[in-house]
Amino acid sequence: MRWWDIEPVLALEQELFPEDAWSAGMFWSELAHARGLRATRHYTVATAPDGGVAGYAGLAAAADGTGDVQTIAVAPAHQGTGLGARLLRDLLTAATAFECHQVLLEVRVDNPRAQRLYERYGFAPVGVRRGYYQPGGIDALVMRREHTGTPADPADGPFGLTGTPADPAGAPAHPARPEPGKTAHG
Rank of each mutant, 00 (worst) to 15 (best):
residue 73 A to H: 09
residue 11 A to I: 02
residue 134 Q to S: 08
residue 20 D to Q: 08
residue 28 W to S: 09
residue 47 T to Q: 12
residue 19 E to D: 14
residue 174 H to V: 14
residue 98 F to D: 01
residue 130 R to Y: 13
residue 103 V to L: 05
residue 111 N to S: 09
residue 39 A to Q: 01
residue 30 E to S: 15
residue 57 A to V: 10
residue 62 A to I: 00
residue 52 G to C: 13
residue 106 E to F: 05
residue 51 G to V: 07
residue 3 W to H: 10
residue 36 G to I: 09
residue 42 H to C: 13
residue 35 R to P: 00
residue 57 A to Q: 10
residue 88 L to V: 05
residue 2 R to P: 00
residue 182 K to F: 14
residue 159 F to H: 15
residue 107 V to N: 01
residue 170 G to N: 03
residue 25 G to V: 08
residue 119 E to Q: 15
residue 53 V to W: 03
residue 74 V to M: 05
residue 108 R to N: 05
residue 164 T to F: 07
residue 111 N to P: 03
residue 145 R to P: 01
residue 129 R to N: 08
residue 162 T to P: 07
residue 43 Y to I: 08
residue 74 V to C: 03
residue 72 I to Q: 07
residue 110 D to F: 06
residue 127 G to F: 11
residue 66 T to W: 02
residue 102 Q to L: 03
residue 65 G to A: 03
residue 33 H to K: 11
residue 121 Y to H: 14
residue 183 T to N: 09
residue 59 L to N: 01
residue 160 G to K: 14
residue 114 A to E: 01
residue 114 A to S: 07
residue 41 R to A: 14
residue 12 L to E: 12
residue 75 A to V: 09
residue 135 P to N: 02
residue 53 V to T: 15
residue 58 G to Q: 07
residue 93 T to C: 05
residue 160 G to V: 15
residue 167 D to S: 09
residue 87 L to P: 05
residue 101 H to S: 04
residue 168 P to W: 14
residue 32 A to V: 00
residue 175 P to H: 12
residue 95 A to T: 04
residue 160 G to Y: 00
residue 142 V to I: 15
residue 40 T to Q: 10
residue 21 A to K: 07
residue 105 L to D: 02
residue 78 H to P: 09
residue 145 R to C: 03
residue 79 Q to H: 13
residue 185 H to S: 09
residue 46 A to P: 06
residue 2 R to G: 00
residue 172 P to I: 00
residue 2 R to C: 00
residue 81 T to G: 10
residue 32 A to F: 02
residue 75 A to W: 12
residue 50 D to G: 12
residue 153 D to G: 10
residue 63 A to C: 00
residue 145 R to N: 04
residue 163 G to Q: 08
residue 165 P to G: 10
residue 13 E to C: 10
residue 67 G to N: 01
residue 84 G to C: 04
residue 107 V to R: 00
residue 105 L to F: 06
residue 183 T to A: 11
residue 106 E to V: 06
residue 84 G to Y: 01
residue 177 R to Q: 11
residue 8 P to G: 14
residue 89 R to K: 05
residue 152 A to R: 08
residue 177 R to I: 13
residue 134 Q to A: 12
residue 57 A to C: 15
residue 127 G to M: 11
residue 155 A to R: 08
residue 115 Q to G: 04
residue 73 A to E: 03
residue 165 P to D: 12
residue 141 L to I: 10
residue 182 K to C: 07
residue 15 E to Y: 02
residue 60 A to L: 12
residue 117 L to W: 04
residue 26 M to W: 02
residue 152 A to G: 11
residue 67 G to M: 01
residue 37 L to Q: 14
residue 47 T to V: 15
residue 21 A to L: 03
residue 45 V to H: 11
residue 177 R to S: 06
residue 3 W to L: 12
residue 124 A to H: 11
residue 148 T to G: 15
residue 138 I to D: 00
residue 14 Q to H: 15
residue 77 A to M: 08
residue 140 A to T: 04
residue 110 D to G: 06
residue 136 G to M: 08
